[in-house]
Design a protein around this nucleic acid. Structure first.
Lengths: 185, 185
DNA sequence: TAACCCATGTAACCTGTTACATGATTAA
DNA sequence: TTAATCATGTAACAGGTTACATGGGTTA
C-alpha cells in the first residue's frame, strides 16, 4: 500500500501532457520546449521553465521520456529528452479521453458584478477599454493565422481560430453591455 | 523592512475581492458567502469553504471587515462579518482598476494541437461531444437569465449574457472544426 | 561593454483543492 | 432513520510563479 510516488497516480495535469506533446514531436531540451510552447500552445496553456524542468523529471520517472546527457564544449551541457513507447501510449490515451470545457476565471466579470460601487459612466469606460483589449487580441490571433507556414499542421490553424472566435464574441458582448448601460434605464 | 504580513502586499487575488464583495452587500458568515457565491458569481469564479474562511481572516487582518462572534443556542455559533469603511475603499479601488482579459486555460485546445495521434474520425467525435457540452452550458446560462428575479441587479444579467455569448461562440467554432475535418482535405 | 542566447536548476512562496473532524437541529 | 442545513476550521497536498544562482559564447 505504499505506491506513493508516480506510478499509479490518478490524473496527471494538462501541463504534463503539453510538455510530453512537445517531446513527442522530436528530441528536445527543456529550454527548447519553453520556446516552442511560447510560439504555439502557449496561447492557451503556458508554463514556466521551473515547471517544464519539473515535468520532464516527472515524465522520466514515469518512463514516458528518456534522457540523454549531452556534454557541450562551447555551450552549457544539456539534457535531450526523447519520448518512449510508453510515453506515446500515454499521450494517445490522454488525447483520446473526453475533451472538457475550458474553465474560465474571469476577473472582469467579478468586477462587473460589483460594479454598482462605481458610477455607470466609469463602468462604461472600463468596458470600452476591455473591448479594445479583446479586439487587439483577436487581431493578434488573426495575424498568427496569417503568419502560419504553409506546412504547419492543420490543427494549429483551427486552434487559433478558437481564439479569434472567442475574442470576437467577447468584444461583441462588450458592445452589448455598453449599449445597455448607455440606454436610458 | 519587515512588513511581511498583510498590510502592504502588492496585489491581492481576485478571490479576496469576490469574498469582500459579498460582505459588502450585507453582514454575513463564511457559510452564507459560499452559498451566495454559488448562486451568482461562482459561474465565473468559485471558492471552497476553506478558502473563504481563510480570506475572511485575511480581510479582517487587513481591517477590511470586522467580525462579531454570535453565540447561538440551537445552531452552531457563527462569525458575522461586516465591511468597514477601509474595506469599502479597497473594494472600490479594486473595481476601479483596469479590467483585464480573462485568461483561459483550455485543455481541449491542447488536445487539439496533439490530435494527430488520433484518426480524424475520432477527433470529429470528440469535437461533436464538446459542442454538446457547450450548447448545454449555453442553455444553462439562458435559463439562469430567465430565472433571474425582477429586482436583481442589472449587472447580474449582463454577466450571465457573457456566458451565453462565450458558449455560443465556442459551439459555433466546434461546427467550423467539424466541417473542416469532414471536408475532403 | 552591454545585452542576449543557451541551459539547468533550487528555494520560497502563494493559490487553491480535498479530506477530515465536529455536532446539533430539522425535514423527508 | 436518513439526509440535509447550519457552521467553522485544520492539515496535507498539488499546481504554479518568482526570484535567485551559474556561466561561457555571441552579437550589437
Amino acid at each position: 500500500m505504499t505506491t506513493q510516488h508516480a506510478t499509479e497516480r490518478g490524473r496527471l495535469p494538462v501541463t504534463t501532457f503539453a510538455v510530453l506533446g512537445q517531446v513527442a514531436s522530436g528530441p528536445t531540451t527543456g529550454y527548447d520546449i519553453k520556446a516552442r510552447l511560447e510560439a504555439g500552445a502557449a496561447q492557451f496553456w503556458h508554463a514556466s521553465y521551473s515547471q517544464i524542468y519539473a515535468e520532464l523529471r516527472r515524465l522520466e520517472s514515469l518512463g514516458f521520456v528518456a534522457q540523454e546527457h549531452v556534454v557541450q564544449a562551447d555551450r552549457p551541457n544539456k539534457r535531450v529528452y526523447t519520448i518512449t513507447a510508453a510515453g506515446q501510449d500515454a499521450l494517445r490515451d490522454w488525447v483520446a479521453e473526453p475533451w472538457g470545457l475550458a474553465q474560465l476565471r474571469d476577473e472582469a466579470l467579478v468586477k462587473l458584478l460589483l460594479a454598482d460601487v462605481l458610477p455607470a459612466s466609469e463602468v462604461i469606460a472600463h468596458v470600452e477599454a476591455l473591448r479594445d483589449l479583446h479586439e487587439r487580441r483577436r487581431d493578434d490571433f488573426e495575424h498568427r493565422i496569417a503568419d502560419l507556414p504553409d506546412d504547419s499542421p492543420r490543427y494549429a490553424r483551427l486552434a487559433l481560430r478558437k481564439g479569434v472566435c472567442a475574442q470576437a464574441a467577447f468584444a461583441a458582448w462588450c458592445t452589448e453591455v455598453i449599449d445597455e448601460l448607455s440606454a436610458p434605464q
